[in-house]
Write a protein that binds this DNA or RNA. Structure first.
Lengths: 156, 156
DNA sequence: ATAATTAAAGTCAACATTAGTCAGAGATGA
DNA sequence: TCATCTCTGACTAATGTTGACTTTAATTAT
């Protein structure tokens, strides 16, 4: 509850900013670091530990002149628990067939439509991923499908 | 919208001109440079980074007396030629930024909706693909994106 | 006609300005 | 004490800005 570390304080500050600004905020890393008198890379640490997609945040950034970090809060969907169960079932690796079963489940539950299922299925085939190593293929498919389900948990 | 650097500002200015003039505009490099008080070669930088085929633009120019730079916004539905050029631009490997530019172009041309863009984008981030090798990551991204474009070409 | 001059745009490398990564030191709590 | 979380700074990567030099094309002079 109370902030015990500087990272907690910075995290709460950013969340307050988000609440004030329609759940969307853009910062300059060095500004925030200076404001709290920490090194700039601590801002990366705060974001990596407290503003993940699992927490419902989408983060984008740009380097170089005029660079920025943009944080956006997105809302959970009603059926988010379904996604959680499917994510758990994926693990480190997944075959194309098991992946298609998961997509079928999503279709049957009305969480994806036909076009979306076809689209995802067509881009996650063996030929599309096209890495030489069998294990790499199944790992990539698992990572990528998990990332998709994490995103689908949220609106937009 | 958000212009963080002079290059952003110039890019937005040119896009506003395009919108006003039927998505086709011809400029003199030195005029634009003078207008924004930058060196002329910065206009080349802006065009090279913000008016690529991935962004949905075609650029032609002429040197010497009476020289010009002409920018045109492409229409993917009407011109299958530029569609092929877009596919060609992906090649064997592609960065996350270029991939996101392409998805934005597909959205602007009505080939994907917002939700579909979010789905594909979440699949093709650095974190989602999550392979140790940089080259493998860009190759997987290129393969998957090419598969999507090929599918859109024939099924839309 | 041909050459010289002028008027554009193009290229590239150096430098500037941001954010990201990572390993290790330090702090904290069970 | 041990594991985990926090914090730091050196190094890396990406993006933006500038200016010297090059290339191309039109115009003018011979």
């Amino acid at each position: 509850m109370a902030s015990h570390s500087m990272s907690d304080t910075i995290g709460e500050y950013l969340k307050k900013l988000l609440a004030e600004r329609d759940e969307e905020v853009e910062i300059r890393r060095s500004d925030i670091a200076e404001h709290f008198d920490v090194v700039p890379s601590q801002i990366n640490y705060v974001i990596k530990t407290r503003f993940t997609i699992q927490d419902g945040f989408v983060v984008q950034s740009k380097r170089g002149g005029g660079g920025y970090i943009r944080i956006e809060k997105i809302n959970l969907m009603e059926d988010s628990n379904v996604f959680d169960r499917l994510i758990d079932s994926i693990g480190d690796m997944i075959s194309q067939k098991d992946e298609e079963d998961i997509l079928k489940t999503l279709l049957n539950n009305g969480l994806l439509n036909k076009r979306e299922v076809h689209m995802v299925a067509s881009i996650l085939t063996h030929d599309a991923i096209n890495v030489s190593n069998y294990e790499t293929e199944e790992k990539v498919r698992a990572n990528v499908l998990s990332a998709l389900l994490c995103r689908l948990k949220y609106e937009c």
